[in-house]
């Protein structure tokens, strides 16, 4: 005499009613977020593709369909490739140096000394700056007219060979606070027993750092790498404030060309470049995901 739940009509309707109510509540809770995501994240992706298939006329009065040729031409053109190169260089300048300096500051400040909190606060202080504020701060240092270091040749903003590097230092400095805080927190999360066991094993300080400490903080370092790579891809304010893309086009990163503050590129070109940036973002994300799931030591 087994009575199954489903065979009880009264119960079945009640249960269904509950399910329906829960589903409606779930959708209602997600509705606001989904509305934003669709309107400002996914619809623009469609719009970008659409815009890349149309070319504006000289006066911006009409944009006839031109097919994928504009997209292909843009993504293989020198303007786009130069932007990619500058964005890549910006990563090369900022990511390794940023991580190394973060480790340096954190290792220095991770010890029991009187007054160490003062140093920790100082090292964290750049998190109180926005990119724009950091850019103005570096304006006082490297601006060709009024900067404190305006005569130091390897920091010169007037020289196309050094300008991008000089700009990138403002990012390195601005990121110090964040990298310091994250590395310090991960150093402090290492269980003391691990440190003690390693000390008993007789590692010297350097080998201890390379063999024990670095593997244990590697998740945090990976996270930082992700954050810094993304920040480099998105660098914009520094360039606009410090060089406005110059001299020539020597500091025009990909995003700078897309945002196009001087208004020299047609919409279809900028949309095509945006699709290129999207692809780069996706590649970077995929690479990071692969790295993250393979190489990094995660505690249990």
């Amino acid at each position: 005499m087994s009575i199954t739940v489903e065979s009880s009509p009264d119960g079945a309707t009640k249960r269904t009613g509950q399910r329906v109510r829960e589903a409606l509540l779930g959708w209602a809770f997600l509705l606001p977020a989904m509305a934003i995501f669709v309107t400002f994240f996914y619809y623009p992706l469609y719009r970008l593709i659409d815009m890349s298939l149309h070319r504006e006329n000289r006066f911006g009065t009409a944009a006839p369909y031109v097919g994928p040729s504009q997209l292909v031409d843009t993504l293989s053109g020198s303007d786009f490739l130069e932007g990619v190169k500058h964005s890549g260089l910006y990563m090369v300048y900022t990511v390794p140096l940023g991580i190394l300096l973060g480790i340096l500051l954190a290792v220095a400040a991770n010890r029991r000394l009187k007054g160490i909190r003062v140093f920790q606060t100082i090292f964290s202080s750049t998190v109180a700056t926005s990119v724009a504020v950091a850019s103005v701060i570096f304006f006082t240092l490297v601006n060709p007219e009024v900067g404190y270091f305006k005569d130091v040749s390897w920091l010169s903003l007037s020289n196309p060979d050094t300008a991008l590097f000089s700009v990138s230092l403002s990012s390195v400095w601005q990121n110090l606070g964040l990298t310091f805080i994250i590395v310090l927190a991960s150093l402090q999360a290492i269980p003391t027993e691990v440190e003690e066991a390693a000390a008993l094993d007789g590692y010297g300080p350097v080998r201890h750092f390379l063999r024990i400490t670095v593997p244990l903080i590697s998740p945090a370092l990976m996270f930082l790498a992700v954050v810094l790579v993304v920040a480099a891809l998105q660098a914009y304010a520094q360039i606009e404030v410090l060089t406005n893309g110059g001299p020539g086009t020597s500091t025009q990163t990909l995003l700078f060309k897309i945002a196009d503050p001087q208004g020299i590129r047609p919409l279809g070109i900028r949309a095509s470049m945006s699709i290129g940036l999207f692809a780069l973002t996706a590649i970077v994300a995929a690479g990071q995901y692969a790295l993250l799931s393979k190489r990094v030591h995660y505690g249990d």
Binding site: F41, A259, T281
Partner: peptide, 8 residues
């Protein structure tokens, strides 16, 4: 991110 979708 907003940088990608900026133009649209």
């Amino acid at each position: 991110p907003i940088e990608v979708t900026l133009v649209a």
